[in-house]
């Protein structure tokens, strides 16, 4: 199986001297295409830091991050931005849609940055919005939708750009049970049907219950790696 994410001796230290905190301590792990993985652990265990590293948002103190076959330490910042645009989909806890754009416009946004032709953008967005149950809500602004609906738009935004994998940082933290269940169903289905790779950083037991693989972190180290 092809590795979409691989870390080698990954270390991240915040601060210097006596105040230095080791957020990641020699982390070695990989994720293969089609995985549905949860990074779990208590607060401060390093799961968000690891997610930032594999999202190309932060640079390691030492070690390597290889994303979709590319060692990202070799990339300039502008190249990294483009790499994120083309290879990584993000789903955030607070949805983070652009408030002034409609559901449709939010969903097509990354494709616009990628210069995807208008016809193709339209086809992909309508198809995905329909799949996530948001048909008819295309013109709604984020403020006119529920949290669950906004998070589904965020998922469509991430998926529409056809990334190599999707990183989701506590995607269900602000959702009620029904919305959480619906969102997880959606992601699980996309994983099963489209072989889309999902990596979650989460505390949520409901997410862990659905994950095929759970990576446990504590004090910046992987202490357990379970495949269900």
């Amino acid at each position: 199986m092809e590795n979409v994410i691989e870390t080698k001796n990954l270390n991240k230290v915040f601060g210097i001297g006596d105040l230095a905190i080791k957020a990641l301590d020699d982390v070695n792990f990989h994720i293969q295409k089609g995985e549905f993985t949860a990074l779990v652990g208590p607060s401060g265990s390093g799961k968000t830091t690891l997610l930032n590293m594999i999202g190309g948002l932060d640079e390691p103190t030492s070690g390597n991050v290889i994303l979709d076959g590319q060692d990202i330490s070799q990339l300039k910042k502008s190249e990294m931005t483009k790499f994120r645009q083309d290879h990584i989909g993000f789903v955030f806890q607070a949805y983070n849609l652009i408030p002034v754009l409609s559901a449709y416009e939010n969903a097509e946004f990354i494709m616009l940055l990628q210069n995807v032709p208008a016809k193709e953008r339209k086809e992909r967005v309508y198809k995905l919005l329909e799949e996530v149950g948001l048909k008819g809500k295309e013109k709604n602004k984020p403020g006119e939708m529920s949290g669950g609906q906004q998070q589904r738009v965020a998922v469509v935004r991430a998926l529409a750009a056809q990334p190599a994998y999707i990183l989701a940082d506590e995607p269900t933290a602000n959702l009620d049970s029904k919305s959480t269940s619906d969102l997880l169903d959606l992601m699980y289905r996309l994983n099963q049907e489209e072989n889309m790779t999902f990596i979650f950083a989460t505390h949520d037991q409901r997410v862990m219950d659905r994950a095929k693989r759970i990576v446990y972190l504590e004090d910046g180290k992987i202490i357990k790696d379970e495949v269900h």
């Binding site: 502008s78 483009k82 994120r84 645009q85 652009i98 990354i110 991430a158």
Partner: peptide, 14 residues
């Protein structure tokens, strides 16, 4: 700021 940060994270160039 947060919105701009998110735009940057999803691939909007400087």
């Amino acid at each position: 700021k947060r919105e701009i940060g998110v735009l940057r994270s999803i691939g909007m160039t400087k």
